[in-house]
Write a protein that binds this DNA or RNA. Sequence first.
DNA 1: TTGCTCCTCACGTCACGTGAGGTGGC
DNA 2: TTGCTCCTCACGTCACGTGAGGTGGC
Lengths: 274, 274
Amino acid sequence: MFSIGEFANHGRVSVRMLRHYDAIGLLRPARVDASSGYRYYEASQLSALNRIIALRDLGFGLEQVQSMLDENVSVAQLQGMLRLRRADLEASLVAEAAQLTRVEARLRIIESEGRMPTHEVVIKRLDLIRVVELTDVAASFTPEDIGPVIKPLCAELGQRLAAAAIEPTGRLIAYYEQSPREDDEVVIHAAVPVADGSHAAGGLAIADVPAAEQAATIVHRGSMDQVLPTVDALARWIDVNGYRAVGFPRELYIECPEDEAHWVTELQQPIAPA
Amino acid sequence: MFSIGEFANHGRVSVRMLRHYDAIGLLRPARVDASSGYRYYEASQLSALNRIIALRDLGFGLEQVQSMLDENVSVAQLQGMLRLRRADLEASLVAEAAQLTRVEARLRIIESEGRMPTHEVVIKRLDLIRVVELTDVAASFTPEDIGPVIKPLCAELGQRLAAAAIEPTGRLIAYYEQSPREDDEVVIHAAVPVADGSHAAGGLAIADVPAAEQAATIVHRGSMDQVLPTVDALARWIDVNGYRAVGFPRELYIECPEDEAHWVTELQQPIAPA
DNA sequence: TTGCTCCTCACGTCACGTGAGGTGGC
DNA sequence: TTGCTCCTCACGTCACGTGAGGTGGC
């Protein structure tokens, strides 16, 4: 018979742990003194303790450990739990490796630029959005070419929405479709979300902006004339963190007051692992 | 100005999170209505939220995030935090990879043997132990050769301890030193721990059983004549889990009643990554 | 009036670590 | 008597999720 302290010593666990395992019924002492409450363990219980430690060290929770030690658990169930654990571990390893990549990317940036990045990139999921939209084309994907096309396009969109009495359910979205031709031409979509049952009206097209499992996003503050550095930062981030762009880039117009210098927009780029 | 719900939507976070960040002072709403307590956020606060999300997604705790956003934090401090995080992540990846190896090993065992292993192996750290000991040699590391040598050796040790009035501070330890010669001969040490200041006496040698950062251990129940399957299980485990033996194997005699069938011993083998 | 959004507590999570306050045998 | 070991609460951990119970504007 061992006292709790001796048993803890042999098992390389804390006394508190043994008390905890007693409390949850995972490992009951062989004997408990009725008057003092002292716990006493038998040497043979070391095997039981070791089984618990071994399973816990595979990453199972104590409740799962308890069920795995149950005599009535089948081999198939044990296999199932181990396979699930394996899958969880594999997912966790991938996630942590990605986190490490991002930490290292940030260390490189801090070394080369001497400060933390000011443009923060965040990965989000984008849901499918039902929109009404107008489209036009621009000669290239630079603010100089986009600006003169998108501004009248948005104004026109606003007028037609009012004329057709359509109530948008969200804010303006622009997305940019690379022309199938080999030149730089892009098709610009100016769109607003509408309720699911909406119909085309007033010369406006109904469309679905597709969902994206992962999109890298960045907030741009200020005039869209100055958007290029933000676009570049987003592109570099995607590259440095081991992703690639897989769909149309989008802009979400979050706040557009009179003074364009105070605009807040979010650039979104669907991505996939490179 | 956004209500908390709108802001949460744009930021892809939960309303509860925003309330939490407000509560801990990480991200205060731009305005709080005095009478209703409603929180209102500005579009420009999306950048602040994104910085928080980005840092949190690197694995930093919210308290650390807060300190990293502090204007007074130096670039050197930021670098330090990122490097520490990198080191933690690397360690965590190694630990999880080892865990995955163990889970996979167990899955293979369950497939080949049709049940969970009954001999559980646990990795422990072994501290250095000051002992008094007697030694002898055996022809090989099999129970048939060890048994007839170690039994009288232990009896002799007990007598000399009593004669020299030495009080052991722990239980009997045996460890086995491969002879430097090429044959199977092993040097058997029968030792008991003593207080640090002890001196050699009564023909007993003082020695230190070295510490080991990692040792694979397994509990053997029953007579030492039957120890071979347990020794084999330990050796296989060490092999299958990507370790190798790096020091003397030991036996710790945990409980040795009259009836040897009820003995409980722990086999210990110092290991290192293979 | 019903729904919707917002609010403030406050408990639960997971496996213990860490006191606080007290007892019993050498 | 002092140290040592043991005991039982009970709080703290970390970042929220999840009700409970209630309010205010459309």
